[in-house]
Amino acid sequence: MSGHSKWSTIRHKKAAQDARRGKIFTKLIKEITVAARLGGGDADANPRLRAAVAAAKVENMPKENIERAIKKGTGELGGAAYEEANYEGYGPGGVAVLVQVMTDNRNRAASEIRYIFSKHGGSLGEAGCVAWMFDKHGVIVFDKNQVSEEALMEVALEAGAEDVREQEDQFEVITTPGDFEKVKAAFEERGMNYEMAEVTMVPQTTVRVEDEKTALQLLKLMDALEEQDDVQNAYANFDIPDEILSAVA
């Protein structure tokens, strides 16, 4: 998963630096609304809502925006009715791509996602064709130059992390979705700064992409999917070497 984790880190940094905060807020509001609709408006009793609110706070979303989204979800305020759907397919180089959508118009979403796949050298597949390749995990990424491996291992194991993986310039701490917040909080309490922390879909195996042209086309596909208004998340099982990723990203 190293290539995809590396790309996720770059994407998070870019999102924090550019002018897409309104788009980020829109996606977070959708997630909060649906989480509240499905599990109730009490974050303490609704793990999905709790995670969504925590993500919104990381992005400095105003408290009133969060509360309004929760009320829309519980029916106290009117608003669009969103439904969730997954789309699956293959990108350049045979890379598996899983797209999570939250939309008020499924036909529009399907049409636009199919077009994006086609435009960027991919193809939309049947339901279930790639979803089995991914598992849900918490992932917390650290820069190897900013943290002690010994201290990282100690905190991770004490907090209940599943695994710690060493990559070229990163450490990746893997957790179950249920333990993610606890493990993340343990690092924060120790003042250990991470580059990225999220509950994500982790590929069971990866596809090595060493051709620069293919890598560029693949990343353009991922960017286009994440820019699409109905897309909440896009995951892929590529592993692009750091030197190529740095050159094209």
Rank of each mutant, 00 (worst) to 15 (best):
I66T: 01
S5A: 10
C129R: 00
G191N: 11
E189D: 15
R190W: 09
L28E: 04
T103F: 05
T33L: 01
S118I: 01
V101A: 09
H120S: 01
G89L: 03
R11W: 07
G138F: 06
E210F: 01
A197N: 09
N105Y: 05
A131V: 00
T206S: 15
I244E: 05
V207Q: 06
M102F: 04
A15L: 15
I140D: 05
Y115P: 00
F25E: 13
M222E: 08
A156T: 07
N105P: 10
V155K: 11
Y82Q: 04
K182N: 13
R165Y: 06
G160A: 08
A151Q: 15
R11A: 08
T200C: 08
I244H: 01
Y194W: 14
F180R: 10
E172S: 12
T205C: 04
A80E: 11
V101N: 03
T214L: 10
K184C: 12
A52S: 06
R68H: 00
V53F: 02
Y87N: 02
R21H: 12
A151C: 00
L216S: 13
V155N: 07
D229P: 00
R106T: 15
I24Q: 11
M61D: 01
S118H: 04
F238I: 07
S111A: 15
K6Y: 07
D169C: 01
Q228Y: 02
E84M: 08
V101H: 07
M153P: 00
K27W: 03
T175Q: 09
G93T: 05
M61F: 03
A127E: 10
R165I: 12
N145E: 13
E162L: 15
D135N: 04
G75L: 04
N237I: 08
D135Q: 07
R21F: 03
D229Q: 12
E212M: 08
E198Y: 14
K220P: 01
L28A: 05
E212H: 04
A55T: 02
G78E: 11
K63C: 00
R108E: 10
L218F: 05
E84S: 13
G79D: 07
N237A: 05
E195A: 14
E150V: 12
W132Y: 13
E168L: 13
M153L: 15
I66F: 03
N86A: 14
I174H: 08
G125N: 02
Q167H: 14
M196V: 13
V164L: 10
V147A: 12
G122A: 03
L77K: 13
T214V: 14
A247S: 14
E168T: 13
V139T: 07
R68A: 11
Y87V: 02
V141L: 11
M102E: 11
V209Y: 10
N60D: 07
E188M: 14
V207Y: 04
K6A: 14
C129S: 15
I66Y: 02
G125V: 01
P203G: 10
K30V: 04
G94C: 03
D223L: 02
G125K: 05
K72M: 14
R114A: 14
L225I: 05
V101G: 03
A45S: 13
T74A: 07
H12E: 14
P62H: 02
P62Y: 02
P203V: 06
